[in-house]
Simulated scan of single mutants.
Amino acid sequence: MFRIRSADHAADFSALRSVREVVFVEEQQVPREIELDALDAQSRHVIAEDAEGRPIGTGRLTPERKIGRMAVLRGWRGRGVGAAMLHALLRQARGAGWESVCLHAQANAVAFYRRHGFAAVGERFMEAGIEHQAMRLRLDRPVAIEDREAAVALTVALVQDARRRLVIRSRELDPGLLDDGQVLEALRTFGTTGRGNEVHVLLHDAAAAQRAHAPLLVLAQRLPSVFALREVDDPVDRNDASACIASDAGGYYHRPLGQRFDGEAALAGAPRARQLLEAFDPVWQRSRPCSELRALGL
Results as ranks from 00 to 15, higher is better:
residue 131 E to V: 13
residue 201 V to R: 03
residue 41 A to E: 11
residue 208 A to V: 14
residue 195 R to E: 10
residue 138 R to D: 14
residue 205 D to G: 01
residue 105 A to E: 00
residue 137 L to T: 12
residue 151 A to N: 08
residue 85 M to Y: 06
residue 22 V to N: 07
residue 118 F to L: 15
residue 238 R to S: 11
residue 50 D to L: 09
residue 296 L to S: 10
residue 252 Y to W: 15
residue 144 A to G: 05
residue 121 V to W: 11
residue 70 M to C: 06
residue 247 S to R: 01
residue 127 E to I: 10
residue 93 A to Q: 12
residue 127 E to N: 11
residue 180 D to T: 07
residue 114 R to K: 15
residue 250 G to T: 09
residue 31 P to Q: 09
residue 176 G to N: 01
residue 61 L to D: 08
residue 232 V to G: 03
residue 156 V to C: 13
residue 280 F to P: 00
residue 221 Q to M: 06
residue 43 S to D: 00
residue 200 H to G: 12
residue 172 E to S: 13
residue 124 R to D: 11
residue 157 A to K: 01
residue 193 T to R: 07
residue 240 D to C: 13
residue 231 E to D: 05
residue 291 S to P: 08
residue 294 R to F: 12
residue 19 V to M: 01
residue 207 A to I: 13
residue 215 P to T: 00
residue 102 C to P: 00
residue 3 R to L: 04
residue 14 S to Q: 02
residue 264 E to N: 09
residue 28 Q to I: 00
residue 134 A to S: 14
residue 201 V to Q: 12
residue 212 A to G: 10
residue 277 L to Q: 08
residue 160 Q to V: 05
residue 49 E to W: 08
residue 13 F to D: 06
residue 227 F to I: 04
residue 269 G to V: 14
residue 235 P to Q: 05
residue 101 V to Y: 01
residue 126 M to N: 09
residue 223 L to H: 00
residue 19 V to G: 00
residue 121 V to I: 13
residue 71 A to S: 06
residue 288 R to D: 04
residue 145 I to S: 04
residue 10 A to P: 10
residue 219 L to R: 02
residue 194 G to W: 06
residue 7 A to N: 01
residue 174 D to R: 10
residue 60 R to H: 06
residue 48 A to D: 07
residue 22 V to I: 08
residue 204 H to M: 11
residue 33 E to T: 07
residue 180 D to G: 01
residue 289 P to E: 08
residue 251 G to H: 05
residue 41 A to L: 09
residue 18 S to K: 00
residue 284 W to R: 08
residue 61 L to H: 07
residue 255 R to E: 01
residue 218 V to F: 09
residue 5 R to T: 00
residue 81 V to C: 09
residue 41 A to V: 15
residue 108 N to W: 06
residue 16 L to G: 01
residue 146 E to M: 12
residue 280 F to C: 06
residue 8 D to M: 03
residue 73 L to T: 02
residue 295 A to N: 10
residue 102 C to K: 12
residue 109 A to N: 13
residue 246 A to Q: 06
residue 162 A to Q: 00
residue 29 Q to C: 11
residue 79 R to Q: 08
residue 259 Q to S: 15
residue 214 A to S: 13
residue 143 V to Y: 02
residue 63 P to L: 12
residue 273 A to K: 03
residue 159 V to P: 01
residue 160 Q to T: 07
residue 91 R to F: 15
residue 230 R to C: 12
residue 106 Q to K: 15
residue 71 A to H: 04
residue 194 G to V: 02
residue 47 I to K: 07
residue 216 L to Y: 04
residue 14 S to T: 01
residue 286 R to N: 10
residue 139 L to Q: 02
residue 131 E to C: 07
residue 102 C to Q: 15
residue 187 L to I: 13
residue 48 A to E: 02
residue 98 W to G: 03
residue 207 A to Y: 14
residue 10 A to N: 12
